[in-house]
Simulated assay, not measured.
Amino acid sequence: MATDLTRRFPIGASATARELEADPHPLLARLRAAEPVSWLPAFDGWLVTSRDLALKVMRDSATFTVDDPRFSTAQVVGPSMLSLDGRIHTRHREPFARPFRPAQTRERFTAFVQDEVDRLVGGLSPAGRAELRGELAGPLAVAVVAEALGLPGVDVATVRSWYDQFVIAVSEITAGRPGRADEAYARLNEAVRAAITGPESASLLAVAAHQEEGLTAGEVVSNAAVLMFGGIDTTEGMIVNAVQQLLAHPGQLDLVLADRALMLPAIEESLRLEPSASVVDRYATADIDLGGAPVRKGDLVRVSIAGANRDPAAFPDPDRFDVHRDNAADHLAFAHGPHFCFGAHLARLETRTALAALLEGMPGLRLDPQRPAAARGLVFRKPPELHVLWG
């Protein structure tokens, strides 16, 4: 069976994890054109690169589920809203999703995000140079998640250290290697249990633990870890990628500087062109023909968000960064279907606030030509560092 698949899908057969980690877009374009659902021995599974088929997979949780023991995040933090489907998924998700609806997000986080951005950018301004991932995007994303979780006695640096361990473990498993984060999970478990049992605690975690869905303490811990993935890594990447894309295209930057109403379209276009979460995994619950590919029950079906976002059937001239693209917001950077990211409003708020402060407070902002930056990563994609100059 495997030999037949490699003959039938030769582009996928030659693909490597290293190629997809470094610069996947040329390979994804070849796959999308000739093998939109392709068998990749490197992953022992299928890779979906066309937008219409990506939507089909993400919308149909009955046929393409996350509820499988191989799901990477579940291996690290246990069952959570990210690794469950159906009614039990709703039970896990709803207590956490409610506080992140648009109006609630604006009311609770607008001032906090602005204060954090002002503090971070204000500290950078006199230097004339900075590494924005480590000095702005990362600290901002971690501070917001720490504020949202409300863990008593846990500082921002500790939250960051836990999340780093979780991300490394998930990335290792996705690449087919063992990955664990036992120490981080144990310490998070201790902090969460203190938060939900403390006197008169009003933290997000305490509220979730006492909602009608009746989540156990262990379930709250697992979902708290998942919030770190969505709230830290992908948001950090979203901010860094948006700055990198805009500064790498000076003509587009000039358009935004001349008309700040184009800032939001620029962020959406960056999400389309380089989503910070590059893939999502599903597992087939039945034999099915998917775009002509013979998917079998139990097969891994990996959706390439990066591939779907550059599908020329949806986005003409898909490799071009264009702040005037009228359908840029049709990207799938926040996934789709039951597992659509409910933190999308907060991530946009953080990115918009950070980008506005950079453009206002750092005239002449530009990439450091001596330290080029490009996104990397198999699952979470962003530049390892983003060095900029201004003034």
Rank of each mutant, 00 (worst) to 15 (best):
G12H: 02
L346A: 04
G231T: 05
D52V: 12
P372W: 03
E219S: 02
M81S: 09
D164E: 15
M81Q: 06
S171M: 14
V113G: 08
F64V: 04
A103T: 13
W390K: 08
G337P: 09
Q104E: 13
M228L: 15
G138W: 10
K297C: 12
E172S: 15
F112A: 04
V170M: 11
R381P: 01
A329V: 11
A258I: 08
R376L: 12
G337E: 12
L227G: 03
F109W: 06
S276F: 01
A357Q: 11
P79F: 02
E35A: 11
D4Y: 07
R30I: 04
D155C: 14
G291N: 01
R93F: 07
D281N: 06
L358T: 04
H339N: 11
L149K: 01
A357I: 06
T174Y: 02
G123R: 14
R59Q: 15
A277T: 09
S38V: 07
A22M: 04
I288C: 03
D182E: 15
R348V: 14
F96A: 08
G176L: 08
A191D: 01
G134T: 11
P10I: 09
N189I: 00
D287W: 05
G291D: 02
S125C: 14
A54T: 09
V156K: 13
G128W: 07
S222M: 04
A130K: 08
E35Y: 09
S50Y: 02
R59L: 15
R302M: 05
A357D: 09
E269L: 09
L132E: 11
W46F: 14
R193H: 12
P152L: 04
V76Q: 03
P126C: 13
S125W: 10
M228P: 03
P312Q: 00
M228S: 07
P24L: 00
G231E: 08
S38L: 07
V221C: 04
E147S: 03
G128V: 06
V207Y: 02
H336S: 14
W46G: 12
R302W: 00
L28M: 10
W46Y: 11
P265E: 08
A261D: 15
I173Y: 01
I232T: 04
A328G: 04
L247W: 05
F71A: 07
L365D: 05
A97N: 12
E190P: 03
L367P: 01
A127T: 10
A22S: 12
R7N: 00
A97H: 10
A181G: 10
F109Q: 07
R193M: 10
Y163P: 04
A195M: 09
